[in-house]
């Protein structure tokens, strides 16, 4: 990582509390363009809260978020989506009544240029627009090997596939920054390996910068370029995976304090 290139995402002094309960305290870190950054830490460390701050679901009380050269006090969800931030959720947040294809197409909603009147009459830009979005959605479907379930309602799919569809919906937006909240939670080894493969491919093929939360340290060490460790809402480690693993604070947070 060169020091001259400005980071894609930079958080500074972020503090977030809910009615006095501090979730995140004075956290700052940088994510370079094109890297895979892992957020790790014990349960309740504030990892999901931090993702929610990055894409505007939560507004922090203090701090500054700098994304793609623009500095903000806080993000709004819509603003984040327009700026090129997409995400998946810890508990799958798919549109259950819609097919796989339609779910992925919703990820293209910001790219749609035709007005609803054109869509109702199938006139003007509507037809070409719909085909253009469909073509992108099909690329995503092919990339994630979801062809067989294109028209299946997502509510009927098994858990692992739903996770994949959710990744697809995020990818359809062609984001610059992809936030993944526990993309491998509840998966077996085989599914985890598959998902890791997809994440790495997204990063390498599309050049998408990725921030992910993961509990499986093995996966984290293998996948990420950069690890940020949180504990009780504070940052206790930040750096390359091997370096972070050796930090005494990190070992203490994961294995408990050594008795003297």
């Amino acid at each position: 990582m060169s020091e001259t290139v400005a980071p894609l995402l930079s958080l500074a002094h972020i503090s977030l509390s809910f009615k006095g309960v501090k979730a995140v305290t004075d956290i700052g870190f940088d994510v370079a363009e094109g890297e895979i950054c892992a957020l790790i830490g014990p349960n309740g460390a504030g990892k999901s809260s931090l993702l929610n701050v990055i894409n505007g679901v939560y507004q922090p009380q203090q701090g500054e978020i700098r994304f793609a050269g623009r500095s903000r006090r806080a993000m709004q969800p819509h603003e984040a989506a327009v700026a090129g931030i997409a995400r998946t959720f810890q508990n799958i947040a798919l549109f259950k009544g819609m097919s796989v294809l339609d779910n992925i197409l919703t990820g293209r909603n910001l790219a749609s240029r035709s007005s609803w009147l054109e869509q109702a009459f199938r006139l003007g830009r509507a037809v070409a627009d719909e085909e253009a979005q469909r073509a992108v959605a099909e690329e995503v479907i092919a990339f994630l090997r979801l062809q067989a379930w294109r028209h299946t309602p997502v509510g009927q799919l098994p858990y692992g596939l739903q996770k994949r569809v959710e990744l697809g919906r995020a990818l359809a937006a062609r984001p610059r920054l992809l936030l993944l909240d526990e993309p491998m939670a509840g998966m077996n080894r085989e599914e985890k390996r598959e998902m890791s493969q997809f994440i790495r491919e997204v990063n390498q093929v599309f050049g998408t910068t990725i921030v992910l939360i993961e509990h499986d340290i093995g996966v984290v060490m293998e996948l990420s370029d950069h690890v940020v460790v949180l504990d009780y809402g504070r940052k206790i480690g930040d750096g390359e995976p091997e370096a972070v693993r050796a930090l005494p604070e990190v070992i203490a947070a994961y294995l408990g304090q050594q008795r003297h």
Binding site: N55, V57, A81, A93, F95, K96, T106, N109, L110, A173
Partner: peptide, 10 residues
């Protein structure tokens, strides 16, 4: 189906 997710995707 899920308005929070809808807001997040823009």
């Amino acid at each position: 189906d899920m308005d929070t997710a809808a807001a997040v995707i823009g």
